[in-house]
Design a protein around this nucleic acid. Structure first.
Lengths: 355, 355
DNA sequence: ATGAAAGCGCTAACAA
DNA sequence: TTGTTAGCGCTTTCAT
């Protein structure tokens, strides 16, 4: 409680001057003070003379509005919370990837342009999930998650505050919340286009298939579908389950590389493919082209640079906030899921297939 | 206003059930309800029978505490704001450097461990700086800034909320606020140690000297002082003012390199030195060793990697929050400025001097 | 162990 | 144009 902190000496007697005090001093009612001081642009319906008197009184008394009181009355805080992953985990900005950073840049930017402030992974009030999700300090929430566990689901379903999903289609929750995703199908498509153009036909897809991310699954399925559409048959041996401990990937390389190109479900997977290729003496891109997904800063730190499908994270973050703001004002956007197209960033890990 | 949003259909009649409603249903007074539901661990002084009755009533009615009302009464929000640079600018996480990311990781981590949530560069309420700095939505503020302009100063001096500075010593504001900084002097010292060990004696310091950052100045002064202590004379020609448009640095290289090593005021400067060296056909590190400051991810993206003085940003962020929390509870830490030692990360841009 | 009353600071509705 | 009243939802005295 800082109102009686030692540091509070300078000013007059500041801290607890209320509209009532100002009113008294200016010889008017609190209502008038409120109107003069806080009525933004509204018809103020106060004579300039009294207005001036009020302003002077406020100035002299060092009046400062109690924002909390206002928020309480208005029932809004102009803050949005960003929930990450499990919902209660901490975000990490400084990891190797810039994934979350890009997203946050978009979110913060969007929030700013709508007059909102952004709180990170708030410690929500309340012991039960229901309570937590109703934490009144946020007008709305952005939920960003890669893996959708059962606990996640339950929490989200109980959410009684406007919420926007990133990376999970709205249909996952019966269109209860709007969502922002990238077009995984199209992204995989352009990567396959490029590989085709380079003459690749024996292409594999690699992911952590035991506990895959929501998007990992979409990408894998898109891969299978598009390959088959193009008459390139796909069977189990073309889907490499790397396994969390990489044993799967080791097995793949140990038993001899049977493809000329591998698409990873994300940059992490892609860079691991490159690393193991090195380890097993497979030249990238000479013998094996590798493509990642997300085009994070990872890609430049690997040797050779990892070509990668790129999703417009900053734009997506910004859009998520726009959706949220509309959702806060009671509007349900239609369509509920906004889909953003991907691009392809070519770096050093892709080249034409040796024939 | 989401209480009448279309989405609000599921639950019973949820949304506006108050303690009074619960009280009525349970046949007790609101006081009792408050005690049962919200009195954390305090002596509840309510019979288990009624307590149970209250809990059931709350459950049945779908009661949800109005957090805003509580905050209003308690006069605290358990939120801290992080102000960046000019105080109202947006942060950028996804730039090339990880500077801000590391800091934020520390801040968020520290906040979590104290039960606080972190809001980024809040859009502060109030039109005047004084009002803004008194925005009641935050129990305290962390101010992170590299450049201390006049506007900054004025704002900070008017701040009536607990605040902790990062990168600016407390003495700059008459010890009114606690502060967290790195030991720039010691950092420059270890870099010079290393260069000495490598046989360098003709060493320059490069910075944007026209509008230098607060820390740039500290580092420059430390450089001069330590060089002289070691009997290596320093004159104006050993301080390279790169200028914002790099004209200064161009001039330096154009007129012939007269040093075997250059320390940059930060990684940005360091990487620019490397870039221009390339451009002017000067081999790094063969002919010129280069050292940066901050050891951000920049350093790995440059060729050759930029050796750099490293400040423990995550720890500093965490400590800033600890100081803030103590400051919020009315305590003024002593000493007011916490100084953290630097390390040195050797990468490819330094080698022994050709003699 | 329980309840009645009062008030945090602000503002909207209504009256004058 | 200005003032009076009442209340947002919660909690803390102070009685009982």
């Amino acid at each position: 409680m800082y109102q009686d902190s030692p540091r509070r000496e300078g000013e007059k007697s500041s801290g607890n001057v209320t509209v009532r005090d100002v009113a008294e001093r200016a010889g008017v009612s609190p209502t008038v003070v409120s109107r003069v001081l806080h009525n933004k642009a509204n018809a103020i319906r106060v004579s300039e003379a009294t207005a001036e008197r009020v302003r002077r009184a406020a100035e002299e008394l060092g009046y400062r509005r109690n924002v909390l009181a206002t928020l309480f009355r208005e029932r809004q805080t102009m803050m949005i919370g960003v929930l990450h992953g499990m919902g209660f985990g901490k975000p990490l900005f400084s990891g190797t990837s810039q994934y979350f950073s890009c997203l946050m840049d978009g979110i913060v930017d969007g929030a700013f342009s709508h007059g909102y402030s952004v709180t990170l992974c708030p410690q929500l009030y309340g012991s039960t999930p229901e309570d937590a999700m109703a934490d009144g300090r946020f007008d709305g929430l952005v939920w960003y998650s890669t893996h959708l566990t059962g606990g996640n689901r339950e929490l989200l379903e109980k959410c009684s505050v406007p919420l926007v999903l990133i990376h999970t289609p709205a249909s996952e929750f019966g269109n209860k919340f709007p969502a922002v995703i990238c077009d995984n199908h199209q992204g995989i498509g352009i990567a396959l286009d490029k590989l085709a153009e380079l003459g690749h036909t024996r292409i594999a897809f690699a992911l952590e298939n035991e506990y895959p991310s929501v998007e990992g699954v979409f990408r894998r399925d898109a891969f299978i579908e598009i390959m088959e559409q193009r008459g390139l048959s796909v069977d189990d041996s073309d889907i490499i389950d790397i396994r969390a401990d990489l044993t799967g990937l080791h097995m793949y390389f140990a038993s001899g590389v049977r493809h000329t190109a591998i698409i990873g479900a994300n940059d992490d997977v892609g860079s691991k493919v490159i690393a193991l290729a090195h380890q097993y003496g497979v030249n990238v891109p000479g013998q094996l082209s590798v493509v990642g997904f997300d085009s994070t800063s990872y890609c430049d730190q690997v040797q050779p640079g990892l070509s990668s499908i790129h999703q417009p994270l900053v734009v997506m973050g910004r859009s998520a906030v726009s959706l949220l703001v509309r959702s806060i004002s009671g509007e349900m956007p239609d369509p509920p899921t906004l889909v953003f197209p991907c691009g392809l960033d070519i770096r050093g890990s892709t080249t034409s297939a040796r024939t």
